[in-house]
Amino acid sequence: MSNEKSLPFIYQFLSGAIAGVSEILVMYPLDVVKTRVQLQVGKGSDGEAYNGMLDCFQKIVKNEGFGRLYRGITAPILMEAPKRATKFAANDEWGKVYRKAFGATQMNQPLSILTGATAGATEAFVVVPFELVKIRLQDKVSGSLYKSPLDCAIKIVRNEGILAIYNGLEVTLWRHILWNAGYFGVIFKVRELMPKAETPSGQTMNDLIAGTIGGTAGTILNTPSDVVKSRIQNTIRVNGVVPKYNWAWPSIFLVAKEEGFGALYKGFVPKVLRLGPGGGILLVVFTACMDFFRSIQ
């Protein structure tokens, strides 16, 4: 990510982990609202309709209590360290591989997009079990079936089989490939276009702007796959029964056919509010951590 000297993998991993946990602590309630809106079909499975982000937020607080906005946060907290660490570390490591493979001395935008996509695929394998547990706990109906993230994971394995913990892997791959390709590709271009910062605070502002724009671009690209991922992972598997939502692209076409194209962007506002500024937070904290580790080398 930085033009300065690269650091060993462990420092990239730690920086990504710290950045990820910082982002989730600030932005998690928006993720709960996003998931609730995405899972809603018609009036929702419990008869309660959410008319947008603010209405969903208000109804959760009024009917279920403020603490519900942090329901299931243990799984994301446990996930964020390996997830974000993998994102940034894999991006840096794959960047080295591709620069060598294509004989490039420096990164360019096509390589940034390719590197981001590959890092996203790498990240997806790490996060699927955590995402599955998080989605089940965030939903109002299915969330009542589980006492804790551990109880949720145990019941999924016991009732649906050991492989069920990786339900939604294929759609998660698409979600992370698209987001990371957009995020890192756009960050590279925005940094290239922005004037060079002369002060640390100026660099922080540049990173915040670049990360926010990159996070917004990634969100626009991957929201349809995120909508169907929520539905695929919230479906309890039953032997001999083919789920309504099963694979990424058939599910995307099904949602568009039954609910209209706009349904593929359900939850977009809270999602972009989280991952736009959230992408900025990630980049700022990651860069600050990397700079700190360079200073003590």
Rank of each mutant, 00 (worst) to 15 (best):
S251F: 05
K229P: 00
L169D: 05
F102W: 14
S112Q: 07
G47Y: 06
E64T: 01
V269H: 00
A85S: 15
G182Q: 02
E160L: 11
V126L: 12
F268E: 05
A101D: 04
D291H: 14
G276L: 05
K59V: 10
F88Y: 15
D92V: 12
S142F: 05
R84D: 03
Y265F: 15
A19N: 09
L163Y: 08
N246H: 13
A117I: 07
F184H: 15
A85T: 00
K244E: 14
Y98E: 11
K266T: 02
I213G: 01
Q38N: 12
R158E: 07
L264R: 06
G103E: 07
A256H: 08
L111H: 01
K62D: 12
M79W: 04
N239S: 14
N234R: 12
W94S: 07
L54I: 13
G44A: 02
S225E: 04
I220L: 15
F293V: 14
I232T: 07
L173Q: 08
E48P: 01
C289W: 03
M1V: 14
V272P: 07
Y98H: 11
F130Q: 02
A248M: 14
V141G: 01
I296R: 15
R237I: 14
E4S: 14
F125G: 09
I296E: 09
I73T: 12
F130D: 04
Y98S: 12
F102Q: 06
G202Y: 02
G214F: 11
S144C: 05
Q203S: 12
I135E: 06
M107E: 09
R158P: 00
F184V: 03
R294D: 13
T122C: 15
I77Q: 03
T219F: 00
D207A: 10
V133K: 01
F188I: 00
V141A: 15
L69Q: 04
P8D: 10
N51R: 08
L114M: 14
L132K: 13
I156G: 02
E93Y: 12
T122G: 15
E259T: 05
A121H: 06
K87P: 00
M1I: 11
R71Y: 05
Y166H: 08
G182M: 02
M27N: 11
G202K: 02
V238D: 00
